[in-house]
Design a protein around this nucleic acid. Structure first.
Lengths: 213, 213
DNA sequence: GTCTATACGGCGATAGAC
DNA sequence: GTCTATCGCCGTATAGAC
C-alpha cells in the first residue's frame, strides 16, 4: 500500500519496482489515449519494451494494472494538494495556490488527469470505492474551510460546494479538453503562455467571486 | 446530411427514421456509460429491442453509428446555443442565458454531454474534423463577441478565450463529473436544487468577473 | 524472470435464406 | 427488412519450457 517509494536510495526490490514503474508510466499514457477497454495490454507492453506475457507476470490482470495506474495518479495528485488548504491562511492566497497547483497538475500530468476523468465520466464503475475513501474526504474538508471563511465574513457568502466544483472543473479542463482548446486556439499544443493566461483568468474569477463587498 | 427531420408530419421514411432514432437514443446512453471500445453493438441492439444483425442493416459499421450519435448530439446542442450570442444584448443577460442553456443541456442530456466529452478526452481521433467545422467557428464567434464588449468597455478586460473555456468547463462538469459530485454530496442523483445552486454560483462568478470597476 | 505456444471467449462484420 | 449461421480477428489469460 505504501508504494510511493520512488527514492533511488532504497535498494530492496529495485529491479521489480523499476520495471513496474516503467509499465505504469507507459500505461497511464495509453489508457488516457484509448480508454480502458480500448487499450490492449500488448500495446502497453510493446511501448514499455517487454512482452505481453512478461507484463502479465508483474500485473496478473489488466484491471489490476489499471487500478495501480489510478492509485499512482491519486498519490501524485494528493501529494500536491494535501498541504494546501489552510483555514488560517489568507483565503485569496490559499485559493491562488490551489488554482496554481491544480493547473500545474493538468499541465505536467495531463494523461493522469485524463485517466481519472474517463473513469469518472463512465460512472467510476471500477474505482468509486477508492474515490470515496481518498478523494471525497479531502473535498469535503475543503468545502468546510470555505464555509468557515464565509461564517467569519472573510469571503463573500457563496455556495462553497459549487465553488469547489467550479475550481475543479476549470482547472481540470486544461487537461481533459485540451484537444478542443487546441482546435479553438489553432495550435498544436497548449503553451506555457496559455497556462499563464488560464491561471490569471481563473484567479481573477475566484478573487472577484469571494471579494467581500 | 439534412437529417434533422423529426417532424411527425413527414411521411417519407417514417419507419426507418423512427427505428434509427430509437437506435441512436439507446446508443447515446450506452456509449456514454461504456465508451466507444467498451460498447458492444450487440448490447445496443438488445437494449433497443432488435438483433445485432438487424441493427447493422441500419448502420453498416459501429463507427458509422458512433458518428451518427455525435452528429445528433451536436445537432441538439447547436440548436440550443446558436441563437444566444447577441453582440447588442446586455452582456450580463447574454452570459446568464448562456450559462442557463449549457447547464440545462448537462441536466437534460447528460449522456450526450458525456459521449462528446469522452471523444474530446481521447483526443477526438474520430470526430475532430466535424468539431473543427461545426463547433470551433461558433466558439470563435463567441470569443469575438466577448472581445467586442471589452473594446467597448461594456465588460471588464479579461481574457475572452479563457473566459469561454471557463464557462464551458464549469457547465460541462455537471454532466461529466456528476459521479464525483454525487459522492461529495452524498446523493444518488443531482437534483433540480443542485442545478439551481450551480447556476446561481456560476452566474455570480461570471457577473463579478465581467463587472466594470 | 522471461519466453513460446496456446486456450478461450467476445466481437465486428458478412453471406444468404425467407 | 429481418432472421440464422458463421467467419475471422483480436485480446485476455494460462501453461509450461528454459
Amino acid at each position: 500500500m505504501d508504494s510511493a517509494d520512488n527514492s533511488k536510495v532504497t535498494k530492496r526490490h529495485t529491479g521489480r519496482d523499476r520495471v513496474e514503474a516503467g509499465i505504469v508510466a507507459t500505461a497511464v499514457r495509453i489508457f488516457a489515449e484509448c480508454g480502458y477497454e480500448g487499450t490492449a495490454v500488448a500495446a502497453i507492453a510493446e511501448a514499455a519494451g517487454l512482452s505481453k506475457q512478461n507484463l502479465m507476470y508483474y500485473f496478473p490482470t489488466k484491471q489490476a494494472l489499471y487500478e495501480r495506474v489510478l492509485d499512482d495518479v491519486l498519490d501524485d495528485w494528493l501529494a500536491r494538494m494535501e498541504t494546501l488548504a489552510d483555514p488560517a491562511g489568507e483565503p485569496a492566497d490559499v485559493l491562488r495556490a490551489y488554482v496554481h497547483a491544480k493547473l500545474r497538475f493538468s499541465r505536467e500530468q495531463p494523461a493522469a488527469s485524463r485517466v481519472y476523468a474517463m473513469e469518472m465520466i463512465g460512472g467510476a464503475k471500477i474505482y468509486s470505492e477508492q474515490i470515496k475513501r481518498r478523494v471525497v474526504p479531502l473535498l469535503r474538508r475543503d468545502i468546510e474551510i470555505f464555509e468557515q471563511w464565509i461564517a467569519q465574513g472573510r469571503i463573500a457568502a457563496v455556495d462553497a460546494t459549487h465553488l469547489l466544483f467550479a475550481l475543479w472543473a476549470m482547472t481540470q479542463s486544461y487537461a481533459d479538453f485540451s484537444a478542443q482548446m487546441k482546435l479553438v486556439l489553432g495550435q498544436d499544443e497548449l503553451t506555457d503562455a496559455d497556462f499563464e493566461h488560464a491561471e490569471q483568468l481563473i484567479t481573477t474569477m475566484v478573487t472577484r467571486t469571494i471579494a467581500v463587498d
